[in-house]
Write a protein that binds this DNA or RNA. Sequence first.
DNA 1: TAAATCTTGTTTACGTTGTACGTAACGTGG
DNA 2: CCACGTTACGTACAACGTAAACAAGATTTA
Lengths: 226, 226
Amino acid sequence: MGKKTADHAERRPLTRELIVQTSIAIIERDGAKALTMRKIATELGVGVMSLYNHVPNKDELLAAVAESVLAGLDVPEREAGPDQDWKLHARAMAGAFRAVAHRYPRSMHLVLTSPAGRMAGGRTAERALALFAAAGFDAATAVNALCAFMSYMIGAQMLEEGALSMTGRPPEDHLDADAEIDLDEIPRVVELADELMRVDPDADFEYGLEMLLCALDRLPRGASKV
Amino acid sequence: MGKKTADHAERRPLTRELIVQTSIAIIERDGAKALTMRKIATELGVGVMSLYNHVPNKDELLAAVAESVLAGLDVPEREAGPDQDWKLHARAMAGAFRAVAHRYPRSMHLVLTSPAGRMAGGRTAERALALFAAAGFDAATAVNALCAFMSYMIGAQMLEEGALSMTGRPPEDHLDADAEIDLDEIPRVVELADELMRVDPDADFEYGLEMLLCALDRLPRGASKV
DNA sequence: TAAATCTTGTTTACGTTGTACGTAACGTGG
DNA sequence: CCACGTTACGTACAACGTAAACAAGATTTA
């Protein structure tokens, strides 16, 4: 009957969640700047404007993508209370963040980049703050610890992504014609370039994380210090 | 005579550097996504395609912007050699980075975000590596220190920028209609929201920086340990 | 000197983007 | 039966990046 039912995709009822998931898939496959309303539509086998029945505009769609990606940050979350080994939980949170960052690297870039993504990270910040509070930090110190913790998380992720995009790779989503002043006047960088890319990023990350956690552990704390 | 000489801008001979500077001005004034080839052209009082005589395409222009912004990172740079107070130099580098980030916040966001920007940071990485080498770290440790240092720099900057964009402000370059799940289930965050925005970001930054530097100082080092 | 080439800017035009608008198929309650 | 809201579709438009052809001065070459 239907003379133009989709030929290349299953015909699910086109809900908002489906649009978001398809968007994530496209971002991971073709890069963030290749995410187009028309592309989503054809991928789903529907008209372009049909998407706007479920999503008000593209920015909101990106926000929904960010939220969906961060929704995968469900670290088991123990019960609250004084915790004598708060570093273990901090490591778990960092690991969870790292896991989703590895599963959806490009979408995670979008999350870290856009202000909507930072907003969606509110719940994660909440959990981290609870953790620091349980560790015995007072309010001001907990905020400082949270800032340092998140700074390292975000920066390390973006740094690793940038380092990976530097190592040859067929440049897919970013410009490739920027080899003009390279390798000329940065002897130490090229000398240590192999060192930079030899070390697996996970080890680098863990190294800095341990350093940060130890530093945090030396901060003044309140009652629940075991 | 010229019946259509520009009325709103001086008529300099339209060099590449002028285009870059105008782009930076537009980015800082109207946001990064408002930077348009046509806008640059009208701002300079020339036709759109005239720009393409000095810049191959928009991506390269953005790369040039990134490079130009990072060119302001000229920390006085002492002579190389064993340095007994390397932390002082590290603080100087952090301060220089912070200064340009405060002078061109939106352009700096572009730098941190785009891979071209990370590339342009090569010279800065070079200097930091030299610093860590002079401090007595071996190659592997210096790379680890550099990663941690840059991670904190980048993350702290993006975090501060995100925090600033959260505090009410008339949303200029980012979406504003994302108030849906806020303030409901994040009690600790809203409880400490004022704490989060009361502390001036500089103090927060210095706090984490000192922590990081002290942690780095405890890493194993070679001969030049004073 | 005159011709050829390069530089610098303009004009026109094309393809792609996000999305506003009008319309048709669809169930569901009167 | 109809009116109705919800959902999907096709058309249309303004703004975008930029390729191509062209014009006019500056510079080089014969």
